[in-house]
Simulated scan of single mutants.
Amino acid sequence: MQFILHDWNDEKCIKILKKCKEAITRSKGRKGKVIVIDMVVDDEKSDGYNKSIETQLFFDMLMMVEVNGKERNEKEWANLIFSAGFSSYKINLSALGLRSLIEIFP
């Protein structure tokens, strides 16, 4: 499964992620993972002015205004992931330009 979650608020994201966890752990003996392709705002690792940070913040504004969603930093992603009942995750920052590859494990 793969999703983009930035156009959903936290409550809806948790609900979606819980359904995903349910789906990947349903079959006995087989466990999968959820793949999210989305932005991870890199607000803590930046040193000085960075065009990609500016673009990420622009998208954050756009999500808030258009669809009641938001761009999230790693701490916010972790909160969503653990709130949905997952045990771990791995983020590959900037794997796809401004977007990141987020692997979520049951």
Rank of each mutant, 00 (worst) to 15 (best):
A84C: 01
R99A: 15
I91S: 07
K21D: 02
K70D: 13
G97H: 05
K70M: 15
A78T: 02
N50F: 14
M64C: 12
K90A: 14
G32A: 04
L57G: 06
V34T: 05
T55R: 09
E71H: 05
K19P: 00
I81H: 00
Y49A: 13
V34C: 04
I24L: 10
D38E: 11
S27T: 10
V41A: 08
D47C: 11
D43S: 10
A95L: 05
D60W: 05
C20R: 03
V34N: 02
N50V: 07
M64I: 06
K70H: 11
L17S: 02
A78D: 02
I16R: 09
G97S: 08
G32Y: 01
A78I: 04
G85F: 01
Q56N: 05
E74D: 09
F86W: 00
A23M: 05
E54P: 00
M61L: 13
V41Y: 07
L80D: 01
L98G: 06
N68V: 06
V36L: 07
S46Q: 10
E76K: 03
I91T: 04
L98I: 07
I81G: 02
K21L: 05
R26P: 01
L17V: 03
R99G: 11
I35H: 07
D60P: 14
I37A: 13
L57A: 09
T55Y: 14
A78F: 05
L62M: 15
K21Y: 00
A23K: 03
G29T: 04
M61S: 15
K19E: 14
Y89L: 13
G85T: 00
L17H: 04
L17A: 02
L62C: 12
R26Q: 12
S46T: 11
I81N: 02
N79I: 07
R72V: 08
S94H: 12
R26I: 08
S46H: 08
M61Y: 14
G69E: 01
E54S: 08
N92G: 11
N92E: 15
N92Y: 14
M39E: 07
G32K: 04
K28N: 13
L17R: 02
N92F: 15
S46A: 11
V67K: 12
K19Q: 07
G97D: 03
E74L: 14
R26V: 08
D47I: 13
Q56R: 07
E22M: 09
S52Y: 13
R99M: 14
D43I: 07
K45T: 06
K19N: 15
W77F: 11
E44I: 09
F86C: 00
I53D: 04
D47T: 10
E54D: 13
C20D: 02
T25R: 05
G29L: 05
V40S: 04
G69S: 03
W77Y: 12
C20N: 03
S87Y: 00
I24A: 05
K51I: 11
M63K: 11
G32M: 01
M64Q: 12
F82D: 00
F86Q: 00
K45F: 14
